[in-house]
Design a protein around this nucleic acid. Structure first.
Lengths: 200, 200
DNA sequence: GAACGCATTTGACGCAAATCAATCAGGCAA
DNA sequence: TTGCCTGATTGATTTGCGTCAAATGCGTTC
């Protein structure tokens, strides 16, 4: 009923359009969630980490795909099982509603970013959001780890790889961030970066 | 506790950032839901019609504003009242979870549109989505009514008024749609329009 | 029906980001 | 160490859409 599995790096464990008969809970690692157009264009709708629930869809097919960026461990239930659990533990339903509400708020914020922000604002917003997420981990936390590639960041922010790279270089030139390694960013001027993020 | 009110056209009845102490259910009319940046840029995250729930946020302030496009009638509860109702009627919680899940799917589709589709694909997608929504009403339903202004459409699709107008004119020139009136669109070639929408 | 105001359309031009094209840097196997 | 492969950066050029500006159409009031 509830199976624990691992998806190695790069493995797609949810396919957009497939019958949605399972519900997932990620226990470790990071996955990218995305939708694709027939010609290959891709929009990453979010990154899912530890504790994230996937597969809430009401419809009978998944609305997005999920792929492991780092090795991902997850717990998988059949939807029938989920329904039983929801009946047995009403508190779980409350929890899922909270989760969905929060994701909705995040999605609306992302729509603002995709529809109305400039490239620089998008990248700055992204770094600040990443910092918040990982705040629980390292103490200084001006240190932001990016487990995903430039291609992932571009597809998340509605930009191209080149623009993401150029924008990061630009922020570095303005002494707002440091880039010791492509996947490690240091926020040197938090206030300045916030000002570049569209001041929201 | 539960108050029925009316917001005349143009009236803002939810303000982004205000304390979120109420929960709304629209009983008639249409509202635009949007987020704004300090400099005035605006992203409409959706249009809410009859039956739509608003104010699900977990946080203590509204994540978006709501403004009446047409006169809007709504029912308003305090969040305390909502909590009581949720305790009394577990089915309501299920319903809200379904609603939130559906909105999440729609939000992801909109992210794909905003992040990766061209102007023409956005407008075509928008018209087709509008047609689906109003499908329940008129029978032929090739007739799409747009209660919102070009400015609203632009802010929903992440474009400018001018681009929306030019794109509609272009679709008309290609005999895919007819525009008897700015707020009335006729879909002349459904299949052709679908092909222009990014084939999704 | 004349005159005003607002939304929409149309036109000319500019620019931010995309595209096309090398080049560079780091990890890994031989 | 050398060479290769993959991902990131940097550079040159193009372009789709935004900006600025003017014209058109339509509903409303006088």
């Amino acid at each position: 009923m509830a199976v624990t599995s691992t998806a190695e790096q790069g493995r797609t464990f949810i396919d957009e359009g497939d019958p949605a008969d399972h519900f997932f809970n990620i226990t470790s690692g990071t996955a990218r969630l995305f939708k694709s157009l027939p010609d290959g264009r891709r929009q990453i709708t979010g990154f899912a980490g530890r504790g994230h629930f996937l597969g809430l869809a009401v419809s009978n097919s998944y609305a997005f795909s999920a792929e492991a960026i780092e090795p991902v461990q997850y717990c998988r239930f059949s939807r029938a099982k989920l329904r039983m659990m929801l009946d047995d533990f009403p508190a779980l339903e409350k929890r899922l509603l909270d989760v969905a509400s929060n994701e909705l708020v995040a999605a609306q914020e992302q729509m603002l970013l995709l529809g109305r922000k400039t490239a620089r604002e998008r990248v700055a917003s992204f770094l600040l959001a990443r910092r918040l997420e990982s705040a629980a981990c390292v103490s200084p936390a001006v240190h932001v780890h990016l487990p995903m590639t430039r291609s992932d960041i571009a597809d998340y922010l509605g930009l191209t790889i080149e623009t993401v790279s150029r924008t990061l270089t630009g922020l570095k030139a303005d002494k707002l961030i440091g880039i010791p390694h492509p996947s490690e960013i240091i926020i040197l001027n938090h206030q300045g970066l916030t000002a570049q993020a569209g001041g929201h």
